[in-house]
Amino acid sequence: MPAGDQTVSRTRIPSRLRKALGLAPEGPHYLFYRHGWIVRLTHWANAAILFVMLLSGLQIFNAHPALYWGRSSDFDHPILSLTARGTDDAVAKGVTQIGPWDFDTTGVLGASKVDGQMTARGFPDWATIPGPQWLAMGRLWHFAFAWLFVANGLMFLVWATWRGHVRRDLLPTKDDIRHLPQEIVDHARLKFPKGEAAKRYNGLQKLAYSAVLFVVAPLIVATGLAMSPTMDAAAPWLPWIFGGRQSARTIHFLCAFSFLAFFIVHIVMVVLSGTWNNLRSMITGRYAIEGERAP
């Protein structure tokens, strides 16, 4: 690992702004090599892949914007549906139904504007790849990038397991679990670890990363495969363990939105705990730590 080098700031930037942007602090600090190149490469590849997967997935979902539980679709009792109300010529209203509840989501879910015209659509055109209703193309994007998602994910997981990254840095320890309440309070107060403690992931981070890597990612691949009729012939237990193909489709959808929720929290945390410092560490690998390097 390269040695961290002392840096001297040349320009005068107000310390509050410096802190807000996550620039290296004015006081004593050093750059710590935090992320290896495989982590950085697979991280950014994954960001691009998940973007395409989520938005092409919403395009596919729009072909039949309803979710069910079980083996087949009970069309009268979806768990969730995004529908349009009004006449065929004039869509007036978009309705999101979740269980027994209806919500007016006109303009976003169920009905949204396409070329200025209110149109029946599950998710709006700014949330799908491609933008217009085009199931065939959505499927091409989704199934091509699914291979990249699996290849990229496996590359990371194999490396991370082999090099001990999983055991050492990602899986929460008993200590992490014991400190979780304190960790939650600290996060709520936007108090983030400094100095030596900033070199490690905290308990909440470990939990979030582990959940996404070891639960959501495998689950989304398995439920995706469970929707394939040929895979179901090859492995009839695959849809069975999820309670049927339509349940698998619903879990697939929930996993996709778990990724989205993770992404939103991740971005907020990156910004709150020092945007540039975090970005730099995921680009060059180097993260600024306040204080003197331990001898």
């Binding site: 091509a144 291979w147 009729p229 849809p239």
Partner: peptide, 28 residues
């Protein structure tokens, strides 16, 4: 479209390895 569509051949080949000619769809 052609490039993304090419992936279909990979998917077909891999799925055929698992499903072969005779794996039956589940009967209910």
């Amino acid at each position: 479209q052609d490039a993304l569509g090419e992936v279909e051949n990979l998917t077909r080949r891999v799925q055929r390895v698992f499903a072969g000619g005779h794996a039956l769809a589940t009967e209910y």
